[in-house]
Amino acid sequence: METEFTPVASLFGGGLIGLSAVVLLAAHGRIAGISGIVSRILPPSVDKAGLPQGIIFLIGLLLAAPLWLVLTGAAPVQMVSSNGLLLVIAGLLVGFGSVMGNGCTSGHGVCGISRGSARSIAATMTFMATAFVTVFVLRHVVGG
């Protein structure tokens, strides 16, 4: 299904994500990588020192959509596949892969690239490549 190209909203939204990462680094010296923040508070090795800050950051993240609804009067627009099996597989791969690869779109894609990290640049190129291939197969080979 087509979605509207939104260069201005996307640029400003991206700017807010960047600002969040700068605030987190300035205040707490932490990288705003969501997979890292989440996985650090999961077993088996819970980072007790970082636990409160991690949970507070996630509460902020979870409050964004309800606040958006209150301020704009409309829920954020989204189209999520209702194929439960597909999304369980996708979730497992995203969770497993982001922890194994030490980062996701935010940690490697935004923060890592900004720091000029060669590891993050390699990781971003790798996950972009497999994601492009996956969507091609999903939409034009399997679904075509």
Partner: peptide, 22 residues
Amino acid sequence: ARLVVGAATFGIGWGLGGFCPG
């Protein structure tokens, strides 16, 4: 290998669901 295999796995899941963690 963990960096590359992990990122590759993450990308497949990201493409399948359109969701990353954030």
